[in-house]
Nucleic acid binder design. Structure first.
Length: 237
DNA sequence: GCGACAG
DNA sequence: ATCTTGTCGC
């Protein structure tokens, strides 16, 4: 499917969503290393906030220069909530608004960092994989909890990691981005391998546990949601 | 069947 | 995700 064709990934029921995942998964590219984590190019963070009372979802994309980590572009999108929260089907709730926000950028980012999982998923097709296949962009997932997977506690030094395991299979990595602080859970998405994903996450976490682009996107989508809720509007004026 | 379960 | 004060530490 062509990049930006978000509607092709829509679903109304859980069974339909699972079927869509299985179809989209065939388009997942796993044999590319991904953009080098050497400070060149741009990296975007995406995140979404909800107001279920008002049936509003707000997505934000914040694009940073990969070297300086300064913001070079930003976009948001607001709309109705398209799908309930179902573990394993988060993408159907988040991806449509994120795709609309990405479409508003003048230039596509070199890498997209998602707040959630990629291959670390019951059907190996988490949010980051889904967004990557739908947009064609390289993606990785960075989650704050281990979901259903197990892992040994990594060393306490920044940069220590241990495999995130589904049985014997390494589906991601518990990566300590700050000494003495809970690790984050990194997994590959589309067109990026796990080692490269972890290297990017290290570069993107000079100060905090979570990658800078994610933190900025988190703030931006909350702001966009507040503005939309106050106005009663579903788009910028 | 029951519980656990990214955001 | 979201509801929410103070508190500890750099």
């Amino acid at each position: 499917m062509p990049p930006g064709d978000g509607r092709a990934a829509a679903a109304r029921t859980e069974a339909e969503a699972v079927a869509v995942q299985r179809l989209l998964r065939e388009r997942l590219v796993r044999d590319e290393a991904g953009p080098p984590a050497d400070g060149t190019g741009t990296v975007a963070g995406v995140d979404v906030a909800y107001d279920d009372e008002r049936d509003l979802v707000a997505a934000a994309v914040v694009v940073l220069d990969a070297g300086s980590l300064e913001v070079v572009a930003e976009a948001t999108a607001v709309g109705p909530v398209p799908f309930p929260y179902v573990p394993g089907l988060l993408a159907f709730r988040e991806v449509p608004a994120v795709v609309r926000a990405l479409d508003r950028l003048a230039e596509p980012p070199g890498l997209v960092v998602c707040d959630g999982y990629g291959l670390a998923h019951p059907r190996r097709f988490g949010l980051a994989c889904h967004l990557g296949v739908v947009t064609g962009l390289p993606t990785i997932g960075v989650a704050k909890s281990p979901f259903t997977f197990r892992h040994d506690v990594p060393g306490t030094a920044r940069g220590s990691s241990s495999p995130l395991l589904d049985g014997e299979e390494e589906v991601g990595r518990a990566l300590r981005t700050r000494a003495e602080v809970k690790p984050v859970f990194v997994s590959a998405g589309h067109r990026v391998d796990l080692d490269t994903a972890c290297a990017h996450v290290m570069r993107l976490t000079p100060h905090y546990r979570q990658p800078d682009p994610i933190r900025r996107a988190d703030r931006a989508c909350r702001d966009a949601l507040s503005a939309a809720a106050a106005t009663g509007a579903r788009g910028p004026a």
